[in-house]
Amino acid sequence: MLEVSGITQIFGGVTALEDVSFRVNRGDITGVIGPNGAGKTTLFNIITGIYTQTSGKVVFEDKDISGLPPEKLARLAMVRTFQNIELFGGMTVHENVMVGMHTKSSSGLLSCALKMPWSISEERRIRNDSMKWLEFTGITDLAEVEAANLPFGKGRLLEIARALAVEPRIILMDEPAAGLNSQETLGLAQLIKRIRDLGITIVLVEHDMELVMDICDRIVVLNLGRKLAEGTPREIQENPEVIAAYLGDDD
């Protein structure tokens, strides 16, 4: 499904990632973990086209996507969420999700402004279909609220709903549980499993070990820019190198 091979990223002489390779299987929930500064977010930024890697290759569904910009990846059905939640603050919750349907619609600037019949019917479809994702994430009652006014936990759900509206086959989540309380984290775990049940492959960077061990099928461990280990949650928990890295991180 997604194959990362030999990714190296150097920022002005500092090596952030060195020769990282791993594979994500279709339908899995894959966790990427590691101590702070391990390069997890950098890796995500490379896969999703925010950065271009120094060397190495990213292959998604047999297509080399290295260096493609994020908007192209969205059309290939890859989408991501952000650690600090990136919402369209000045727009309503509903409108945020409607933007998520951008690649699923095609009316151009002029036909929108001139209200051509096809763009009217497309607008109706966007309006209706987007509600589905609000229901799925359970924020229908907030549809008309301006996104900037949402509490953090709801904002997280909105970001996921908007990503789902893209109808991705893979979704990458950067620390989805960051800033959530334990109640919200539980809900999130359920939501992620339900997303998997839709047939969507999930990759997530996460610090909350309990959540990762609970929901992930496979785990990739990064440390200091290198891949330290890869395997099932059980294998990872028993891996002495991983334990050492985490204990070493603490002192």
Binding site: F82, E86, M91
Partner: peptide
């Protein structure tokens, strides 16, 4: 408006 509020998020959704 999405580009205005968060260019990167707008790009991510296509």
């Amino acid at each position: 408006r999405a580009v205005h509020d968060s260019e990167v998020a707008a790009q991510v959704v296509g």
